[in-house]
């Protein structure tokens, strides 16, 4: 996993609420047995007409060249529905490393953190301020200080992340490294309780 420290980038706005993981990546694209290559089907049915990837819907934000960046900004309850981690893989594979929303579904949030995608939860008001920026505006996400800044205006908000996960992301560690390191504790637990 790539470490995340500070991300400074333009952003891609998706001002829709309840974006579920079936929209992020429809089930028919979950047939691969590796983690790579899901980005091309990110938001597949919003992105292309008639399920034809040579026929993009021109008004969808991923097809508009004036919008780009490593930060996806979406409405509340992002990532609800299916637990498919393929949603996080598709977002990462497309080139996003941060998703900003005013509310995340639990499983999606965990999946993102486990793949080096940082979910940044902001207030509804701050989210609206980001949506009000033009397409050249940039955001700075500073994980060490748990801050997100709208660079144009200097407005900022702090965001929550637990210390354990923060350290994992800052250092590019994952949970399996940790769990394997406490194997003795796990075996002791089994002996005592099972």
């Amino acid at each position: 996993m790539e470490p995340i420290k500070t991300i400074h980038s333009r952003f891609v706005p998706l001002p829709l609420e309840n974006v579920d993981t079936d929209q992020i990546i429809p089930a028919r694209f979950l047939k691969a047995t590796t983690r790579e290559g899901f980005g091309k089907n990110l938001f597949r049915d919003w992105r292309y007409l008639d399920n034809d990837d040579t026929n993009p819907k021109k008004d969808f934000v991923l097809n508009r060249p004036e919008y780009e960046g490593k930060i996806l900004v979406a409405g509340k309850n992002f990532g609800c529905g299916s637990s498919r981690e393929h949603a996080a893989w598709a977002i990462l594979d497309h080139g996003f490393t941060v998703v900003v929303s005013s509310f995340f579904a639990d499983i999606f949030k965990g999946n993102s953190l486990n793949n080096g995608v940082l979910p940044v939860q902001v207030s509804d008001e701050f989210l609206q301020k980001i949506f009000n920026q033009d397409n050249q505006s940039t955001l700075t996400v500073d994980l060490e200080n748990q801050k997100i800044i709208i660079d144009n205006t200097g407005e900022e908000e702090t965001f929550d992340i637990n210390n354990y996960k923060k350290n994992c992301l800052l250092n590019g560690y994952d949970d399996i490294d940790y769990l394997v390191s406490i194997k003795e504790d796990i075996e002791k637990f089994e002996n005592q309780t099972l």
Binding site: S83, R84, E85, H86, A88, I107, G110, N111, N114, N115, D174, D175, I176, L179, V180, I182, K183, I186, E190
Partner: peptide, 15 residues
């Protein structure tokens, strides 16, 4: 429900 990284965690540690 868990994601695939967590499936891997349970494989590795049953936790």
């Amino acid at each position: 429900g868990i994601g695939t990284s967590e499936v891997e965690m349970v494989f590795a540690s049953q936790c």
